[in-house]
Simulated scan of single mutants.
Amino acid sequence: MLTESPTVIVTTPEELLPLLMEAVRAAIEDEKKTDVVSPQGKKLLAPKDVEREFGIHRKMLAEWRSEGIGPAYTTFGRRVLYERSVIEDYIVSKRIKTSEDSGA
C-alpha cells in the first residue's frame, strides 16, 4: 500500500530523448565493463570465455581438440578448460614476423 501520493512527471519527447540516450549509453558501458572484467580474473577459461576474450570460436577449439592440435586443455568431468597463460602463449607462438617487425 502506498503511503505517499504518486509523483507525476510531465515532459516532452524532446526533453526525454537525451535522458533516455544517456541511460542507454551508461547501460552499454556497464555491460562492457562486466564482460571484460569478469573473465579476465579467471585463470581457467571455458571455451565460451576463450571465444569472448580472444576471439577463437568454440567450434574451432572443438575441432582442434578432435584433431589433437591447438592449445593444451584440461578436462574436468565433461567440462573443457583452458589456462589463460596457455591460450596467450599459443597465440604468441603463431605470430608471423613481417619485414616491418624486424626492429622489435
Rank of each mutant, 00 (worst) to 15 (best):
G103A: 12
S38Y: 11
S5H: 09
E22Q: 13
E29T: 11
E63H: 14
K59H: 10
G55N: 04
K48I: 08
V36H: 12
Y73H: 14
F54N: 01
K42S: 01
P47Y: 04
L19G: 07
R78A: 11
S66E: 09
D49S: 07
V92K: 11
D49H: 10
L44M: 11
L19E: 08
G77L: 02
W64P: 01
M60C: 09
P39I: 12
I56V: 14
S99T: 13
T74E: 13
P6D: 00
E63T: 13
S102E: 15
D49G: 04
P18V: 03
S102P: 00
F76M: 09
R78K: 14
V86W: 03
K43W: 03
G70N: 03
L19P: 02
G55Y: 05
M60N: 08
A72D: 12
A72L: 08
I28Y: 08
T12R: 04
R84N: 05
S38K: 07
G55T: 03
L17A: 12
L45Q: 04
L44D: 06
R65L: 02
S66V: 02
D49M: 03
A62R: 06
K94W: 00
K59N: 15
R95F: 14
R84D: 02
G103E: 05
E31T: 10
I96D: 04
L44F: 15
R25V: 02
P71H: 08
P47S: 03
A26K: 13
M1Y: 07
S66Y: 03
T75P: 02
R65W: 02
G41N: 09
P6E: 00
E14R: 14
R65Q: 07
D101W: 07
D35C: 09
L61K: 03
S102F: 12
L19F: 08
K97Q: 12
F54H: 06
M21Y: 01
G68C: 04
R84W: 07
F76D: 04
L61E: 07
S102N: 10
S85L: 09
S5P: 00
V86R: 05
K43I: 07
K94V: 00
P39E: 08
G41T: 09
P39W: 12
R25D: 15
K48C: 07
I87Q: 01
R79Y: 12
L81E: 07
I28F: 10
V36Q: 12
I91Q: 05
